[in-house]
Design a protein around this nucleic acid. Sequence first.
DNA 1: ATTCGATATATCGAAACGATAGGTTAAATG
DNA 2: CATTTAACCTATCGTTTCGATATATCGAAT
Lengths: 211, 211
Amino acid sequence: MIDLAVLGLLSESDLHGYELKKRLREIMGPLSSVSFGSLYPALARLERDGHVAAVIVPDGQHVSPNIPMTGSLSGEAAAFRASRIRSVRGSRNKKVYAISEAGRLKLAELISEPSSTDERSFNLKLAFCRWTEPDARLNLLQRRRATLVESLGEGRRSIVASSERIDRYMRSLMEHHTESAERDIAWLDRLIAAELAVVPMESQTNEGASS
Amino acid sequence: MIDLAVLGLLSESDLHGYELKKRLREIMGPLSSVSFGSLYPALARLERDGHVAAVIVPDGQHVSPNIPMTGSLSGEAAAFRASRIRSVRGSRNKKVYAISEAGRLKLAELISEPSSTDERSFNLKLAFCRWTEPDARLNLLQRRRATLVESLGEGRRSIVASSERIDRYMRSLMEHHTESAERDIAWLDRLIAAELAVVPMESQTNEGASS
DNA sequence: ATTCGATATATCGAAACGATAGGTTAAATG
DNA sequence: CATTTAACCTATCGTTTCGATATATCGAAT
């Protein structure tokens, strides 16, 4: 889940942890943002697995990991990183992360994988779905739609089935759930229609237009 | 969080773990239900702390923990429980839980506590808020409203601030967030109005009709 | 007859959270 | 001017929750 968030943000620009959290808060809203307690361990995990590379940058400088490198991150980033990861004394340091090729692969894989059907994961997948094939995008939207349709049906059945057991607070909550599900499905329908308009039926090669 | 769910459901009727999960799925929807991996440990924890009492019931029988007891659970439930918690051989057993007085206290406390501002917790608090004082109910709704209003403002600001950085997918996601927040606030306003209609103005600490 | 799905309890490792701690710098406030 | 406050930045700790998995009984359909 959080890997998706980090890799998605880093595929647009190199960022450090704190900025990563702020951006994520913008995208996901303050109520479903991630905590530092999961972000920093995730960054360490991703760095260990070679999905991202990190460079310590003294305050004030605008250096990012791809500046001191000529080509791919794998080679020179590793050398740069190995040289000396240490705080510069008497200055504020940032640890700027950049995504690697393996990371980009991983990102596309995470967006396309059918598991992780929770709302947070879907929102992240949608937010970064421009990094995948158009088919994967459409597939993502339709899978989410199917999930919500099933949830909506079950919700409606529950209201009928348990009508005698529930009080007005529960009833209001359950009805609000079904209404929210309906709105979400309508929203997805609009997204699916827009997606079909751009991608008529085929087109497996280079994506155009949108960016 | 899960303690709230368990105690809330048990304050209406005695239930076993599996049924507890089904009921919770009805209330919260299948997409935000709890897993067995948190439910059973939670039941064990609540039993250890004396908030619930459990009785093993052979399949077919409709016995629940409060049937063999004359009054409060604390005395006789403990005796019954101590007598012999053991599976009846060759039969399917349920472990039926009942809430204790301490559990009811704990439930009211959990609903009234101002922390746990996430959506799941609020939904559960609302679902079971009939077990608290009317002031606590109103307070709960107004606190949630304030949270959403702030989130909405921040969301709107984010859309403006990051308008150049985001593509159409992110934009759609962020706009959908703000629309959902608006709908949720409108829903809360209806609930608050209904609550004020029942409880006129008896609150001693003046809060005023702020909206 | 046997497979299949629902009922039922339980545990394990991994993921994510919330609180907290540590430190630097810019801005506002008295 | 001095001091406090707020924002920036990285990091860890203990707890909660999840998802997968194991085990077993039962009714119903194949």
